[in-house]
Write a protein that binds this DNA or RNA. Structure first.
Lengths: 123, 123
DNA sequence: CTCCTATGGTTCCCAAAGGTTACTTGTCCC
DNA sequence: GGGACAAGTAACCTTTGGGAACCATAGGAG
């Protein structure tokens, strides 16, 4: 019997199955920088430098890696303009927009729960 | 002028501010293993071994580290029973339950979007 | 012609996290 | 005595995460 997810059959995917590729997809978006990048791109396309400023604290290297990973997963699109100085714009794909909603909930949770989390730590 | 989040004032917390501790909280939950652990604990308390089986693919060491981190953040509680063999139960705190909802949305997104993501990659 | 700026990275290096395998502690059952 | 069970630790190695420095290009200032 083939495992779910590994076949082309319409088995439901399951993140609790380590063989299921959807766990890798979860790994891509369940990440601090991914959550911030996707949230930043929600209002519209942004350039590399704008993203670095908006995320404020990320290094070029890590931002590049994060963007490449999101692009590879099909969540964002990268468009290079043949200008000088070079201009590169990143934007959400349709799939990226669908991920933006649960990720916004996650960011909102973190912002809204910090006070309770801090109170819990000392108590 | 003090930055928001660093003061006791009722400034809104902001994950896009690198000084704001809520970014650390986001880092704790925006993580593959955290998302799976919290989802596993949603129906009720589980023992260490049960979690390791349920998550299927995580090592003891990483599971321990994940649980400690979630406990430190106040999302889960750890209860040790003085029995032989020893029994340790992990359960969601009230704060943990509140995080369970956005995390469930994230897992569901991953499971439901895999097919589209794969199609996007080849296209 | 040279220097400076702007942009979007890449490279090098180190620290931290992820992962694997083996081992521990303490009692019960055989 | 020896093995099993539960919940980890310890030692070790590999993969990411992160910071600082560097690079290519071309237009404009001097």
């Amino acid at each position: 019997m083939p495992t779910a997810c590994s076949t082309g059959l319409h088995d439901a995917h399951d993140v609790y199955n380590p063989e299921c590729p959807c766990r890798d997809l979860l790994d891509v978006i369940a990440n601090k920088w991914s959550a911030l990048v996707i949230g930043a791109l929600e209002p519209g396309p942004m350039r590399f430098g704008q993203l670095r400023t908006r995320l404020s604290g990320i290094s070029s290297k890590v931002l590049t890696a994060t963007l490449r990973r999101l692009e590879e997963a099909g969540l964002i699109e990268r468009e290079v303009f043949a200008e000088v100085p070079p201009r590169v714009e990143y934007s959400l794909s349709e799939l990226g927009y669908s991920a933006a909603q649960p990720l916004a909930a996650l960011r909102t949770w973190a912002e809204g729960s910090l006070d309770r989390a801090v109170a819990q730590q000392s108590g």
